[in-house]
Design a protein around this nucleic acid. Sequence first.
DNA 1: TCAATAGTTTAGAATTATTATAATGTAGAT
DNA 2: ATCTACATTATAATAATTCTAAACTATTGA
Lengths: 142, 142
Amino acid sequence: MPKNCNFIEKLREVGLRPTKQRIKMCEVLYNREKTFHFTINDLVKIISEKMNEKISLATVYNTVHAFEKKGYLKEISIDSHKSYFDTNTSAHHHFFDEDTHELIDCDESDIDKINIRKKITGKKINSVEVLVRVASDNQTQK
Amino acid sequence: MPKNCNFIEKLREVGLRPTKQRIKMCEVLYNREKTFHFTINDLVKIISEKMNEKISLATVYNTVHAFEKKGYLKEISIDSHKSYFDTNTSAHHHFFDEDTHELIDCDESDIDKINIRKKITGKKINSVEVLVRVASDNQTQK
DNA sequence: TCAATAGTTTAGAATTATTATAATGTAGAT
DNA sequence: ATCTACATTATAATAATTCTAAACTATTGA
């Protein structure tokens, strides 16, 4: 979803009623310079602490899943204990910082095109994603 | 861990006491032709149904994590709702069948070497892993 | 051989993330 | 303004995992 767009119209377009909770969540998620990576817990904290809004936990879950279904959010699997979501819904790769638990998008140019030689009969490839895990290299330095 | 190896010695080597629960779990996990991908739930079912053994759920969790810590199992993140483990602990890529929820190892030769151009200052790359999601392509066929 | 002890197993309680429920509220159409 | 279908909410339920503390057992060394 583009930054500063008319969220009310955008929501209506895909058949989601523009409630005040959904509009507020759009602002939190999409009025940003960079793409945003978050867990539900992060989001709930931002809404309640930074925005000083009260949106029920169930609504946050419902809305995140509704946005995901409509293609406005993408789920990223990194850690089996938490669900990460990404406002960048295009096919792209990630760096995951194991120290800070932060996700970083890769640009198209950061990783060469992946060539998959293996074919599985009767199956088509839905996505190819690379996860690069990084951590501080202090240990190896003097 | 090699197939049909002396699990008792192997466990002692890394400082894990060879209890009957751990030896039984070694047999289930490592006495196989191919590498084994499983969730804790899968494993508990195999132990109780196929092996007709009773190992406490807490012990299965403890032991899987002990084996992981000692480098005999590797956790794979695919689905944020479940933890998958892999008896192949080397760096390698996976196919994930979204219909059957089955994981398939990629051979070295299945995917070209991945070239990462991006550098993150102060961080070293710990791993680079590719996940190829596949699903039935019935939809696109006549 | 046998007791001491440190590590292990266990059932069940606790915790955490997520989803379901059912009552109340609200957007959009008439 | 009223109706109706969809949304929101607090709370209960569920599922995966971890914690707890008591009972058990492999190892050590007398």
